[in-house]
Simulated scan of single mutants.
Amino acid sequence: MNAKADTGALSRRSVDLPTGTLELTLTHGADEADALLGFAARANAKRGFLFLSKVLGKHWPVTPSNMIAIHERLAATVPNVDGPVIFIAMAETAIGLGQGVFEAWLRAHPGHSALFIHTTRYRVGGGELIEFEEAHSHAPRQFLHLPSDPALRELLLGAGTLVLVDDEASTGNTFLNLTQACRRLNPGIRRVHLATITNFMGQSATDGLSARFGLPVTMGALVGGEYRFTPGDYVAPATPAQRFDANADRGASTRFGRLGLSSALRAPERLAARLAGEFAPGASVLVLGTGEFMHAATLLGAALERQGVNVRVQSTTRSPILTWGAVDYALRFPDNYGEGVANFIYNVAPGQYDHVLVCHETALNPALRELAGQLDARLFHFLLDDHVEEVPVR
């Protein structure tokens, strides 16, 4: 990776990727930018670069305590407000981040009403489904389910504050599309807060968010600045990343955030204590979430860390990324939701960890068996947050 830095008043960087040249100007957070993110090249004709977060637990392994500390920092950026607050996390990359920010905010505001819900690329149940677009994504169609529980639906339709959580902001278009969809449901939304690890919209665009959205918008980000990307000659392969079928049962659960939650998930403490007793002292452990199923895996990792285990958490993804820069290893396998699209794990090589624990919401299927075989992993099926069944794979 060829990255050149200008050490003037503003931090400027130029990164030569296989897909083009990325130029950055960092206006705040430059002192911790390298600890928070790296750069990767996407095999995506719409966007050839990726701000790869090192604290998200998606493409890079991270200790649970470090990830939870990021959740708390972003939760602290949410302004103090009256009335219920809606937290929406963006699929698939930021689902775990958003749920963690929601739970950190609840810890800091005991007794305050809030709703967490995450967008998804799967239908669950037979309720109303709202569609919006993430135009630059490899899989652009996103959906938001209306909660089926009357109390949760009342929170969604009655809250005045909307908090949207994603790992990065670059144009603001997806946030605007989702906000408009939410305001059609709930015209009483009075303010929006955007919580992101990085904000590369630039100061002018950030200052103009309220005028653009048509209501007060605030932004909380750990690193900020702006970017320019000049595409090169790379031609991305035309491989499908989304095959949505409204009538297909993908095995996605209704219990972990797609239909809304008003309280935190519980960590599987007894499972963690049992597993910690099985591991040799100092053994390295990876807890691996699958696709949109991320936060429950993080909570298992956190419980293991409290037991003294040397643990990292991460997740699989449908996003195709080149092996370059912040990605030094890529493993491909079939998706366990049965869409028939490729899924990937980055920066995890077979044999790298002494133990790999794959956490999944779908029932056992050949894709999960293949994944377990490639990583010599154990499979853990989460029926509830603290009701987990190990699935024999040997």
Rank of each mutant, 00 (worst) to 15 (best):
F200W: 15
E278Q: 15
T218A: 12
R274K: 13
M219C: 14
A195L: 06
G214M: 05
L194V: 13
F200G: 12
F256E: 13
V287Q: 10
V223N: 12
G251T: 04
A267W: 01
D249N: 15
T218E: 09
F213N: 01
L194G: 07
S262A: 15
R258Q: 11
A236E: 00
G202M: 03
T206V: 07
D249T: 05
A236P: 00
A205S: 13
L265E: 01
A252Y: 00
V192F: 05
G277V: 02
V192T: 10
A241M: 02
V217M: 05
R266F: 00
S210D: 10
A236M: 00
S204T: 14
L259Y: 12
V287F: 10
L261A: 11
T198S: 15
N199E: 11
P216N: 06
Q242N: 04
V192Y: 03
T198Y: 05
R250M: 04
Y234G: 01
A264T: 06
E278R: 14
T254G: 07
Y234N: 00
A248D: 07
A248W: 08
T230G: 05
A276R: 06
T230P: 00
G257D: 12
A272L: 07
G220E: 11
A236V: 01
R212M: 05
D245K: 07
G224Q: 15
S253T: 15
G232C: 01
S263Y: 02
A195D: 08
F213G: 05
P240D: 03
R270T: 11
Y227K: 08
T218C: 04
R266A: 13
V217K: 06
E226W: 07
G224S: 15
P237M: 03
T230E: 13
Y227P: 07
P240L: 10
P237Y: 07
M201V: 02
D249P: 04
L271A: 02
V285W: 11
D233L: 06
V285L: 09
F279E: 04
A195P: 10
A205K: 12
G224I: 08
Y227G: 12
D245N: 12
T198K: 04
